[in-house]
Amino acid sequence: MSLLVREALLAFRRAPLLSGLSITTIGFSLYAVGLFALVAVNLREALREVEQRVEVVAYLLRGTPPEAVAQASQDIAAFPEVARVAFISEDEALRRARQELVEFRDAYRDLKVNPLPASLEIQLKDGYRDGAHTAAVAERLRGYGFVDDVRYGREWIEKLDRLRNIAGVVGLTIGLAFAAVAVVIIGVTIRITVLQRAREISIMRLVGATNGFIRGPFLVEGMLKGLFGGLLAIALCYGTYLLFRGQAELATSGIVFLRSPQLGLGVVFGVLIGLGGSLVSVGRHLRNV
């Protein structure tokens, strides 16, 4: 084991320029993937914020007994899709309207009778804020006799659904394409390393090294390069994130950085590419010599 690691580390010392170039290439390839992940995460975050505004409002008929409303609130809160149910009385609705609709403030002040109905505002759980679930909840609410009307911004939610689907498909496709490009570039880089050491490999074989023995240090070297490349990519992504966060407009929109599990996944991806690339390159080389 110590021989394996020593030989792998020696490879860095013997060819520092090539090793540095390999790590930089792996780093920049993963940086491209990381940048894309950063954009994807922020888009998803933005979508989630929009999603949180999804709510179903059931307007109640005038004169609905408070006990019936309380009972219905409990029932509705028990729906699997429902996160929270809030009762908004007629007075509360008017107060809100006066506060939020500044341009109609005078009109609302002069009212003698409150025209606004009481309502139940229903917020949905994560994962249930799509068109199908929202419509299903709305339909069930309409079944209550005292519910006059149900609103949930159907068209808006359907657009959100479409946007989510497009973002998902495009994200996956571009993400996979970036990852594939990274795999190819890293594979080529490792192949160059193997070719550069073809003479050493031939001498190892000449003195009786097994293929496993020859492969070992290359695999460790590939993994280390993947690891360092992954860390470099994180540093570059973080630098880019700081740069963008410094821009005033983006600062206010709350741009987020990748979370630890995502960063860990990136490094593991780098290590696995380094390992896989080395395995393929050395294996092919050993078969051909």
């Binding site: 074989r205 000449l206 003195v207 009786g208 090294a209 097994t210 293929n211």
Partner: peptide, 14 residues
Amino acid sequence: SPHDLPRLRRRLGV
């Protein structure tokens, strides 16, 4: 076989 080649080479000096 690929397995035998290293064993042969260890018995030789080249």
